[in-house]
Design a protein around this nucleic acid. Structure first.
Lengths: 190, 190
DNA sequence: TCCCCTTCCGAACGATCGTTAGCCTCCGGA
DNA sequence: TCCGGAGGCTAACGATCGTTCGGAAGGGGA
């Protein structure tokens, strides 16, 4: 893939994240590259292609980050690593993450379905960790694992609104994990 | 305010939530009312007015729900009630909540600033609960209250994506609260 | 030297955008 | 009975939308 094409994709990610997909015109994209809008069609067939490429790249990036989490060892550690991995991607690829979380819904047709499937699979991978933790007894056996997973996924999916590129995401992920594991009250009060 | 005007606002909330503000045309709104698009301008001066009205109504609704939470009594109970109040609004006014959480950013100028101020104030009200809980010793004294608040606010802000109108939001809020208070590991393992 | 490939230009396309205007109809109150 | 205002219609406005097209510049490989 040529350099110019990837410049376009990067600019599109930035503008889609900033102004939304429908709020960004092909003219805006052309301006970002210092080029006439007609010229962009040497690189793409349609504006919708850009949205698809960015959203799909996001899916691949998040899945790849999760792949690096071992599938054995203490569950709490793996949850911590999974959250670290996710937040790291958000902070390092904020534009792509934003499109992945918020703008994907403007995908149409078969692409939309493919994306949704992949997104659901990603969330399932998270959920499985909590379920496993409960079943193995590493988390409390009466844990409502679906609710726990929902809480973590909410933090993960909302992160693009408050994370900024320089954040120490590992530290943040650890604090979230510690909080979820030990609770807000702690042993001191009981 | 006439009935017709409120019908328009309701339809706009639904369409903005479904297709996004920029993804919804004035023609779409007119279709929803079974009317020509020019006719809408008997009720509004501009499309942007609708976005403002809906977003602001959302702000008022969420604040009003939080107003019903007592400002004394056990902090954990008040956090629970605050979360209940929030989730209830989301489930009962899903379209408005969606605009409040996601579409507000297409507001422009002074309206945008006013909205952001009000939104920040809402989140501050949540944060204050956790801070108070820690300071009063009702939550663990070494609690990272900012992180705890962020976790709850993430769940609250993300809820519009998975809550559906018939959900038992009180029950859900209680499960979130219990999880946060007691943690995922529980006394059994320590 | 020639040729191809990438990249861009400039101009234009039809479609759709949000908004305005003038006119008409209907209905409730004076 | 008349009047006024609310609400809707039709038609059109200029602007902007995403996209197409023919041509041309430029550079690298043969």
């Amino acid at each position: 893939m040529s350099t110019r094409k990837s410049e376009l994709t990067r600019a599109a990610a930035r503008l889609f994240a900033e102004k939304g997909y429908h709020g960004t015109s092909v003219g805006d994209l052309a301006d970002a590259l210092g080029v006439q809008k007609g010229s962009l069609y040497s690189h793409i067939e349609a504006k919708a292609d850009l949205l698809w490429e960015i959203a799909w790249e996001g899916a691949e990036t998040f899945h790849a980050a999760l792949d690096a989490v071992p599938d054995e060892g203490p569950v709490v550690e793996r949850i911590r690593e999974a959250l670290r991995a996710h937040l790291r991607v958000v902070a390092e690829q904020l534009d792509i993450a934003t499109v992945f979380v918020r703008e994907w819904r403007y995908l149409e047709g078969e692409r939309r379905e493919r994306f949704v499937t992949e997104r659901r699979r990603y969330e399932e991978r998270f959920r499985a960790l909590f379920k496993e933790g409960r079943e193995l007894g590493e988390l409390r056996t009466d844990l409502d694992d679906a609710t726990a997973a929902l809480l973590v996924l909410s933090a993960a999916n909302w992160a693009y609104t408050w994370l900024w590129p320089g954040s120490n995401t590992d530290d943040l992920a650890d604090r979230f994990t510690a909080l979820l594991v030990d609770g807000m009250r702690g042993y001191a009060s009981w």
